[in-house]
């Protein structure tokens, strides 16, 4: 399936939870937040939310800014 993550398309083998994706991307334990198709995915739900083909994800962090 194809996921659009931060604007870029990437292929993954289903089934895939948000938790598994976070692991694959190497962000386990890092302070991030995820939006899926415009809705926040709470951290407590990462292991329950199954990703679907065509999902649009935004994965963000805090950076320096004013």
């Amino acid at each position: 399936m194809v996921l659009r993550i931060n604007g870029d398309e990437r292929r993954f083998a289903p089934p895939l939870t948000v938790e598994a994706l976070v692991g694959l991307l190497g962000f386990e334990g890092r302070r991030i937040a995820i939006e899926r198709n415009g809705e926040i995915v709470p951290r407590s739900r990462y292991s329950q939310v199954e990703l679907s083909d065509g999902d649009r994800l935004e994965v963000v962090v805090a950076v320096g800014g004013g």
């Binding site: 931060n6 991307l25 890092r30 302070r31 963000v60 805090a62 950076v63 320096g64």
Partner: peptide, 30 residues
Amino acid sequence: VTVAIRRVNIGQNPGEPSLLEVLPPSRYTI
């Protein structure tokens, strides 16, 4: 201290320090 929110760089070295490690929310109001 104010911080910006940006897309994480996919493929970024996971060991790289992050801003919130330098300015921990336990010490600063983010």
